[in-house]
Simulated assay, not measured.
Amino acid sequence: MENILGYCQPGNFDKKVDLPPPPYDAAITQNTEPLELPLSGNLELSENDVYEALLNHVSKFICYGKGVVKEMIIIKMEQFYAYRHSLETFTENRQVCWSYEPYAGGHIDGPLMKQCYDPWEITVDPLRQFDRHNVKLIMPHTEMLQACPDCGGAGRIECAFCHGKGKMTCNTCNGSGYTFGFSGEDRQMCVHCFSGTVTCAHCKGKGIHGCSICSEAGEIKCYVQLIVHWNNYTDSSLIEHSSDIPKDILKKATGELVYDEINDRIKPIRYLLGDKENKSVVDLINKHIARYFSKAKPLAHKQRIQRIPITKVTYVWRNSTNKFWVFGNEKTVYAPHYQQKCCCGCTIQ
């Protein structure tokens, strides 16, 4: 770091150095009073809702029979809830590197003016929260002048195509000054060059051209560039009671948004339910902190909780007892043991 922010000769332009973020104090989260989240409201389905959901499900399959839906007798409906907890953190990373630009005159804010700041001491506000973007700026008191490394301070460099001669070999006559007919005997003077050489098109015969690095100024202004990156990191977990619905199916469902807030610190959330849900929230927060906060500075946190309704339906059809589940705002049906399936397999319409 001293070699970059100290005052040695600049070099390795654009070689970026990652700056570790300030250490995160986990006690800030641990000592924050948990938010009590009362989950009130009734999301239970009626029998008509259940019949309609199962009928819609069966109608998607060509080979499924609808007799079960029309003839079944519902004997029990049980209500459960699953919870999707998501935690998104808006973070900041910083890098520094030597950079330069042509010197066009003016004041040089160098190290003799004032001691250079630590990169994390400079206040840089994001343009938008929870939006990935970056900004670049010059670190105060790091500017210095240097002779242009490309032209040595001359402002002009030798043409690389003609090597400073201003002339190049004619491609038409290959430098002989003459062209020949098909028989090789009809020698004529080359009408393109008349001499075997042509004026270099790149430098227009001057043998030199203006230096593009310093814009012909002969000097460049070097400085330490600060690059600030803002990024988002997200973790989520699905918390459920024993509903017997496979998790990969249940995770596609949506539910009622019961919590949606942005805070400058992570607030643990305590459901008014049981230890399992509360532990899942704490586990997600701890995993999130361990995964991201050592490599990025957290600025803001967005937490969301969805409550996903699940209805377990037990029914009788032709003296056979069976069950299925209806879940989510979509009223998706999970019926792995539906009795009227065709053995040849089905396709979804």
Rank of each mutant, 00 (worst) to 15 (best):
E2C: 03
L5H: 00
L5M: 11
C8V: 11
G11D: 15
D14Q: 11
K15G: 01
V17A: 05
L19Q: 09
P20C: 04
Y24W: 01
A26L: 09
T29H: 07
E33K: 08
P34Y: 08
L35C: 11
G41C: 09
Y64A: 08
G65Y: 03
K66F: 01
V69R: 02
E78W: 00
S86R: 12
E88W: 09
E88M: 14
Q95A: 07
Q95N: 09
E101A: 04
P102Q: 10
G106H: 03
Q115K: 04
Y117Q: 11
E121M: 05
I122T: 12
T123A: 06
T123V: 14
L127I: 11
F130C: 01
I138W: 11
P149N: 07
A160F: 10
F161C: 13
G166I: 03
G175Q: 01
T179H: 08
F180K: 15
G181F: 15
G181V: 14
M189C: 01
S195T: 09
A201E: 11
H202S: 01
K204V: 06
G218L: 07
W230N: 06
N231Y: 06
S236T: 08
S242C: 11
S243N: 13
S243C: 15
D244G: 10
L250I: 14
K251P: 03
K252H: 14
K252C: 06
T254C: 05
Y259H: 15
K267V: 10
K267W: 08
I269Y: 02
Y271L: 12
N278Y: 12
N278E: 10
D283V: 07
A290V: 10
A290Q: 15
K297S: 03
R304Q: 13
T314F: 06
R318H: 09
F327I: 02
G328K: 00
G328S: 08
K331S: 04
C343L: 04
